[in-house]
């Protein structure tokens, strides 16, 4: 486990108000994007596929 009581997570929780506002706007923006329609033809398809879209969506050791 990371050392210590997860100081990063603690700071995220301490900024919950600002982050929640940002998260709500991000969710609204995703819903408004055409690519979330799920027809599979756009450059990106859906939030739940985010990490599985290659070339650069995979967070770790992605080709770049």
């Amino acid at each position: 486990m990371p050392p210590t009581g997860d100081p990063v997570e603690a700071r995220l929780r301490a900024n919950a108000e600002g982050l929640n506002a940002l998260l709500a706007e991000a969710e609204e923006a995703r819903a408004a994007r055409a690519e979330t329609g799920g027809d599979g033809d756009s450059a990106v398809c859906a939030w739940n596929h985010f990490e599985n879209i290659p070339t650069f969506y995979n967070w770790n050791n992605r080709p770049r």
Binding site: E9, L12, R13, A16, L19, N20, L22, L23, E25, A26, A29, R30, A32, R33, E35, V44, F50, E51, F56, Y57, W59
Partner: peptide
């Protein structure tokens, strides 16, 4: 983030991944 927030039409990988993590921390599912 500031620029993206003004017009978030683009799926911006780094910002959205970070928000995904932040949301999971706040939801207790990190």
């Amino acid at each position: 983030v500031e620029a993206w927030r003004r017009d978030p039409r683009i799926h911006l990988r780094e910002i959205e991944y970070t928000l995904r993590y932040a949301g999971a921390v706040l939801a207790g599912t990190a």
